[in-house]
């Protein structure tokens, strides 16, 4: 499935893979429920490690980070492997996303 707005794209059309790109700054964690349901679905359906590619995600606000953290906690509970691919030239990704590992030490983060 693909969600596409003027600001961002979430693409989960490939098995075990989700990519989020653009700029996501929705008003509250609640408002991320719908677009991020794609990630949740992919997590349910995955047959191997789910890779979430964020390398083209220019901005994500704190509500979005909170929602992403919720998904990671969910994955931990369900014991589903998850991997984030982050962009080392986007400062907030380096700073904020790396600390998500504290939620779950098995979370794999690849910085490219």
């Amino acid at each position: 499935m693909i969600i596409k707005t003027d600001d961002y794209i979430i693409d989960s059309s490939i098995l075990n893979e989700v990519s989020i790109s653009g700029s996501m700054r929705l008003p509250s964690p609640l408002s991320y429920d719908q677009p991020f349901s794609l990630i949740k679905k992919s997590l349910e359906n995955c047959t191997d490690t789910l890779t979430v590619n964020l390398t083209s995600l220019e901005y994500l606000n704190s509500s979005g980070i909170t929602s992403l953290a919720r998904i990671i906690i969910q994955a931990r509970k369900d014991n589903k492997d998850m991997k984030l691919i982050i962009n080392n030239s986007i400062p907030w990704q380096q700073k904020t996303l790396l600390s998500l590992k504290q939620l779950w030490e098995k979370l794999d983060i690849e910085s490219i």
Partner: peptide, 26 residues
């Protein structure tokens, strides 16, 4: 991290980490 965990537990409407995040990261 605690606020993130609480957020899920109590299903809070706001994230409440915005200011903390920018102080910590930048």
């Amino acid at each position: 991290i605690n606020r993130m965990k609480n957020n899920l537990m109590y299903n809070q409407e706001q994230s409440e980490i915005g200011l903390l995040n920018i102080i910590h990261n930048f």
